[in-house]
């Protein structure tokens, strides 16, 4: 069975969630009031906006991840043919990982991996 099954699965997921939500919508009549619509913050009205500029700490990891993840993708084709290529493959991946590892060390030295 081919890629069509993915579409079937997606439709199934959407149908499942949609039907569940619809049932719950029909089962009861929702009432609203002002307090109900407040964002939950331990019962205290929030001060200031909730969507704000955020500390760079989280994004540094995302940046480093991006580099490593792309490199990881390069390794998949290699992994499939390791056994056929033999020792040369080991040689290649040693160089590849060495460069990656140096990158990691560099990021570590630069303090990108320390939470600020």
């Amino acid at each position: 069975m081919g890629a069509g099954s993915l579409i079937a699965l997606m439709i199934a997921a959407i149908a499942f969630s949609g039907i569940a939500l619809l049932i719950s919508k029909f089962v009861l009549k929702a009432t609203t009031n002002k307090q109900k619509g407040e964002p939950y913050e331990c019962g205290i009205p929030t001060t200031g906006p909730s969507r704000i500029q955020f500390n760079v700490g989280y994004y540094l990891f995302a940046l480093v991840f991006l580099i490593f993840d792309v490199e990881l993708i390069f390794m998949f084709p290699w992994a499939v043919v390791v056994k056929e290529v033999g020792w040369l493959a080991l040689f290649e991946i040693v160089i590849f990982l060495f460069i990656l590892f140096t990158g990691l060390l560099y990021a570590h030295k630069k303090g990108a991996l320390t939470w600020k």
């Binding site: 913050e41 331990c42 019962g43 205290i44 929030t46 001060t47 200031g48 906006p49 909730s50 704000i52 500029q53 955020f54 500390n55």
Partner: peptide, 20 residues
């Protein structure tokens, strides 16, 4: 004094409790 976030900074005021 009511503490407010200063727009443009990345500081945020969060209530922990009373129901936490």
């Amino acid at each position: 004094e009511v503490i407010q976030t200063i727009p443009g900074t990345d500081e945020m005021v969060l209530n922990i409790g009373p129901q936490h």
